[in-house]
């Protein structure tokens, strides 16, 4: 069942459709907000805020973009409003490097594995150190698989601005990786 069909059913009063549509996106939106705030408490609060706002405006959703894009736009605005009101500095989330260990191939040498792990950890460090906007771009592009256009729509920027951010993030990662590999190989 598509999102549009679920929305039609929801507006017709189908409670099961409410659960289905919510379940389809709740983890993704949660992860997105958590990635922006690094606070479970804030994320819980914002998550409720996002779904409340989405529900209030659901009737006005016209399907010009996908429901997912529309929902993430609400989420992004909610996060921005939250920080504006709270006057809080945004924090970054550190990725568990343990999650990287499985990325190495089984047949590679111990040295290669170590090098690969070093690469991955470095990539994660680099992601964490990127400005918020870059991390948001990476999240939307690579976690949520939004296209450049959709990412631009969610973030309220031009496609080229998104490209520029992605490029800067990639350049930072490349430089960081190559520096790390060089220093590792010199040891």
């Amino acid at each position: 069942m598509t999102d549009y069909e679920l929305i039609e059913d929801i507006l017709a009063g189908d409670q099961q459709a409410v659960r289905l549509l919510h379940e389809r996106y709740v983890d993704r939106v949660f992860h997105y907000i958590y990635n922006q705030t690094s606070s479970h408490h804030d994320t819980e609060e914002l998550l409720q805020d996002v779904f409340f706002k989405a529900a209030c405006q659901l009737e006005r959703f016209e399907g010009k973009s996908s429901f997912k894009t529309w929902l993430f736009k609400i989420a992004r605005n909610a996060v921005i409003d939250f920080y504006r009101k709270q006057n809080k500095a945004r924090r970054t989330v550190s990725t568990e490097s343990a999650a990287l260990e499985t990325l190495g191939g089984r047949d590679e040498s111990a040295e290669h594995t170590a090098l690969r792990k070093l690469h991955m950890e470095n990539v994660v460090d680099s992601i964490d150190q990127l400005p918020d906007q870059y991390r948001t771009v990476l999240h939307l592009r690579f976690i949520e698989d939004f296209s450049l256009k959709e990412t631009a729509e969610i973030m309220g920027k031009s496609v080229l601005a998104i490209k520029a951010m992605q490029r800067r993030a990639r350049t930072a990662l490349s430089e960081s990786i190559s520096m790390e590999v060089t220093s590792y190989e010199e040891k």
């Binding site: 659960r19 919510h22 983890d27 819980e44 805020d49 989405a54 209030c56 659901l58």
Partner: peptide
């Protein structure tokens, strides 16, 4: 999730 679902339902 449950709290979020309630918010969604409340919004509707």
């Amino acid at each position: 999730k449950e709290a979020s679902l309630q918010a969604f339902t409340r919004g509707l």
